[in-house]
Amino acid sequence: MSTSRTTALVMVPPLLLAAVGLVHPQSLNGSTAAHWAGLHILLLPVFPLLTVGLLVPLWGRPRRDLAGAATVVAWVGCFVFAAYYTGLDAVAGISAGTAAEHGATAAVHPLFARGDALGHAGVYALAVAALATCTVLFPRHGMRVLPGAVILFAACWSFVDSHIFWPRGVFTMLGFAVAFGLLAWAADTDAASG
């Protein structure tokens, strides 16, 4: 796959999430409940695709040595993110939206609390996967990895409590898109030239 296509591939999921963030309700109430629940149903397969930005640059990396161990940590972190962040969408998105839509507003706060705990665990796993990915890429690609890594860690930090809500969540997703693009470009460019 060409460098430009690889770069575009890893940028699509966060750009899609940023676009959806523009129409994500700012709060959950009776008038937004159906939209809230429906939007999170649509997002179930999209959030796990954020991991593509970490997995694609690792494709074909060595599996025996420190880089191999870090690659395994990155893959496991991506899996944990996908599972737990999907849990956030299911609990605080679909369940809380459905509860609010049917007037069970007393259930919304506990659902948000449980969903937030799942989401935080997922984002922390994504941050570990990001660190592991950069650990694998840096020895081979050097300083070219640093711009993407810095933006990636800032996006992970912001993602802990921004979800995709406008404005910070949208900018967080744009940060992921830029970071993933830079990492993929650095890895593909060096691989093509060396």
Rank of each mutant, 00 (worst) to 15 (best):
H102R: 06
L15F: 12
T133A: 07
A184S: 01
L9T: 04
F81P: 05
A106F: 12
L28N: 01
G142F: 10
F112K: 14
V12L: 15
W166S: 03
G87C: 00
V76F: 03
L50D: 09
L43E: 09
S95I: 06
A187H: 05
V150R: 11
F171V: 15
T135C: 04
A184N: 00
W157A: 15
T133L: 09
V145T: 15
H120A: 14
L55I: 02
A33T: 06
A125H: 01
G87S: 01
H109D: 15
H40C: 01
P25H: 04
G30V: 05
L55D: 01
P167L: 08
H163F: 13
L58T: 04
M143C: 11
P13E: 10
G148D: 09
G142A: 10
A107N: 07
V10L: 00
V76K: 01
A132K: 14
T71S: 15
A19Y: 08
L16G: 08
R61D: 07
V52G: 05
H24W: 09
G119H: 04
D89W: 04
V150D: 08
G115T: 04
A99C: 05
H40A: 02
P45A: 00
V128S: 08
H35N: 11
D188Y: 05
C156I: 03
V123S: 01
F159E: 15
S2I: 00
G103S: 03
F47C: 13
A129V: 08
L17R: 08
L126H: 03
W157T: 14
A92H: 05
M143P: 13
S162R: 12
W75F: 12
G169M: 14
L43W: 12
A67C: 12
R61T: 12
G97I: 03
V145N: 09
T86H: 05
G68L: 02
G93E: 02
V150W: 11
L137F: 08
L174D: 06
G87V: 02
S95V: 15
T71A: 12
H163P: 02
G53C: 04
V23M: 07
G53Q: 04
R168W: 13
L17F: 07
R114L: 09
A186Y: 05
